[in-house]
Design a protein around this nucleic acid. Structure first.
Length: 217
DNA sequence: AGTACGATTGGCT
DNA sequence: GCCAATCGTACTT
């Protein structure tokens, strides 16, 4: 039986941050906006591991901003950054652990996404520029802290995940996270996952890809 | 009340 | 590759 596109329940999110980060690759994020489905296939994620992870917002414990990272697995953590952008995460099992969504391959509602992403209409836009970055995907799906922070993706009426096709390990690159300047040893931990050769990924790691091919994958 | 800064992006060199 | 934009958040005084 093909249960592709069935909604993912609590049990799916009840994994460690690292496992959830990998498991989210290939799943579909659906945002219902004004009755329209905007959807994208998750192609890039990063895990943040809470109290032991110097690069995580939750490293020093729970604050007003990162409270969602401490809630039930499957809770959305949406925060503001640089005054003008926001990023979306999904909490996992583990205190203060969550997975940042870094890129989506748009699959439904592309024109609606473009209207959110470029309020001044762009006559000629590229689909790959809609969601190839954590803040770009929030713009395209109209996700903000006000709208969705702390919402439960298992029960929310306007934002949820659906089962996508299986992405085999041979197609998933695992490498270090993007823009983790400080945090020394944590900057090199392979907590980022993305679909090999996928044009919707935000940042590719040529070295990691080369090593994968060398390993016969 | 004041301050320093960021899990980014887009424009320019 | 470099850098400014822009403001909520966490933390200090």
């Amino acid at each position: 039986m093909d249960d592709t596109h069935s909604r993912l329940g609590r049990e799916f999110f009840e994994k460690s941050g690292e496992k959830l980060s990998r498991a989210l690759i290939g799943q579909i994020l659906v945002r219902l906006s004004d009755g329209k489905r905007l959807a994208g296939r998750i192609v890039e994620t990063e895990a943040y591991l809470g109290l032991v992870d110097k690069a995580a917002h939750s490293f020093k414990g729970k604050t007003a901003r990162c409270a969602a990272m401490f809630k039930e697995p499957g809770t959305a953590y949406v925060y503001n950054i640089y005054g003008i952008y926001c990023c979306m995460n999904i909490s996992s099992q583990g205190d203060g652990c969550a997975v940042l969504l870094r890129a989506l391959e748009p699959v439904e509602g592309i024109n609606e996404m473009a209207m959110f992403r470029w309020p001044k209409p762009k006559p000629r836009f590229k689909v790959k520029d809609l969601c190839n970055g954590p803040s770009k995907l929030c713009q395209s799906l109209s996700l903000s802290k006000v709208n969705f922070d702390q919402h439960d993706l298992v029960s929310d009426e306007n934002l949820w995940l659906e089962k996508g096709g299986v992405v085999p390990d041979s197609m998933v690159v695992q490498t270090k996270r993007v823009n983790i300047d400080k945090a020394e040893e944590w900057s090199s931990k392979p907590l980022r996952f993305y679909v090999l050769h996928n044009e919707f990924v935000s940042v590719r790691d040529k070295e990691a890809e080369r090593q994968m091919e060398g390993a016969g994958m």
